[in-house]
Amino acid sequence: MIGVLQEMLSYPFLVRALTVGLLVALCASLLGVSLVLKRFSMIGDGLSHVGFGALAIASVVGIAPLYLAIPVCIAASFLLLRMSESTRIKGDAAIAMLSAGALAIGVMVVSMTTGMNTDVYNYMFGSILSLSAADATLSIVLSGVVLVLFVLFYPRLFAVTFDESFSRATGIPTRVYNAALATLASVTVVLGMRMMGALLISSLIIFPVLTAMRIGKRYLSVTILSAVVAAVGFILGMIVSYVYEAPSGASIVCVNIVLFLLFAITGAIRNAVTKK
């Protein structure tokens, strides 16, 4: 396995893809802790579909995809936040409506112009080959920024995740931190979409946290475990993808399923032992 990894690292484009992917996977898993615990995981899904729509339109119009998709996704994330907070309309149904709508618009735009080519296929299912050097640099910078902001906001993100009304009642500007969370998540989703595909990117947000929660009992340990699981899952997934020539997104998700099962079994055994 080390041999395969060494072989992979001898291709510059793979090194690029691995670096970007690893950073994005870390961002997604860290933000995922808050998103999942706040019951916002559907937002990640919604964002990826909106991102697909934006990428499709960008590629037809001929704008650099990231420059269009990132602002559009940030705007959509605020909308999604409002929707999930609103008690009037059913939040989850509204999110599903928005994401299906964005996906459909993306597909329509593409099929009416360039047709369903490999570009579109790549956006849906992910491909490491689609990452240009310029994109890679931007991605590395942005995901670095996301990671730094996550660390700086850590105590505040914990507070708004654990108990939003307490935080708001005691004078914490929770809206600001929710907006920050949504913005960081949007950037992460767009960056990760090229590699994972629109249909699978939200798994990077959801899987590592749920896996970590099988074993971790404290917030800090869940956060750290989640990052470790994401990194291991990503690298193993990329190796699987390389060896079996499978799409990267699907390979990473499959590895994550295995990790989840391993953690779930370990957690169950530990609980059974400590109960005795």
């Binding site: 615990l37 105590p155 914990f158 507070a159 654990f162 108990d163 971790g216 404290r218 917030y219 869940v222």
Partner: peptide, 11 residues
């Protein structure tokens, strides 16, 4: 929610 008593009180 996964959190320790200390983490909760600290918040």
């Amino acid at each position: 929610f996964p959190a320790s008593v200390q983490e909760v009180v600290l918040s």
